[in-house]
Design a protein around this nucleic acid. Structure first.
Lengths: 115, 115
DNA sequence: CACTTATATGACCACGTGCTCATGTATAAA
DNA sequence: TTTATACATGAGCACGTGGTCATATAAGTG
């Protein structure tokens, strides 16, 4: 026996009044997450942080970026709680802090590599 | 018996010369994919296209957007091959065309909804 | 305290992005 | 061919973004 799902098409709902939009807050959160991943510098930083923690200067040296550039981007990522840091003397070691976002990044990189 | 993995830390590679950066093309592709998802209007459009196909005017009406706005964003998404369309008379029906990106979007929306 | 090292921050600038208006193009009907 | 409908496109503008330089702050050392 077959049932017609209301989501199959919208021919029974010509005005599409049945469609449930994303609520504003969800839309904002999702947008922000992807915005964090929409810049090559931030992706390079997060990619570096997949496995290890790194200090600001290490990140700058390995990725050949200015220290201030790295600091700015880390602040951006920190505000979105995608990275965290621990202090050791005057040095700050940054590491990733959002498994879900790192998973999404990992998936997308792997997908890009295998196509 | 325990082995020390080289990826455990980078203390055996102080200059981190062992680190393999993302190649430029992969970085570009990944960045572009996320850029497509980093705008609320584009997310709303793709979210609408999760299940059904929609004409340009339908999208504009349901999401309360100008027709030209929708057209511009659809061109953007089309260039990245995230959507496709079929013609029926003068009407163009758009639908999604990249399962991976739609999956990533679905995951992230669900994650945002459940936190 | 002064001095060094590591990082953060603010001002500025060049560039990118998204929306709107006006207009162009394509298909179908009369 | 004219007219109507659906969609695409270009120009212009307001705003956002990322990098750089200069400078500030913070912690450690002597």
């Amino acid at each position: 026996m077959w049932f017609k799902m209301s989501s199959e098409k919208h021919e029974n709902d010509p005005d599409n009044s049945n469609y449930k939009e994303l609520d504003e807050e969800t839309l904002f959160v999702v947008t922000q997450s992807f915005k964090a991943l929409s810049d090559p510098t931030r992706i390079r930083i997060l990619h570096l942080l997949f496995v290890n923690e790194y200090s600001v200067n290490e990140i700058a040296r390995v990725l050949n970026l200015k220290q201030s550039t790295v600091s700015h981007q880390l602040r951006f990522l920190k505000n979105l709680r995608l990275v965290k840091f621990r202090r050791e003397g005057t040095t700050l070691f940054y590491s990733h802090d959002d498994e879900h976002v790192m998973d999404v990044l990992r998936q997308t990189i792997n997908h890009a590599l295998h196509t």
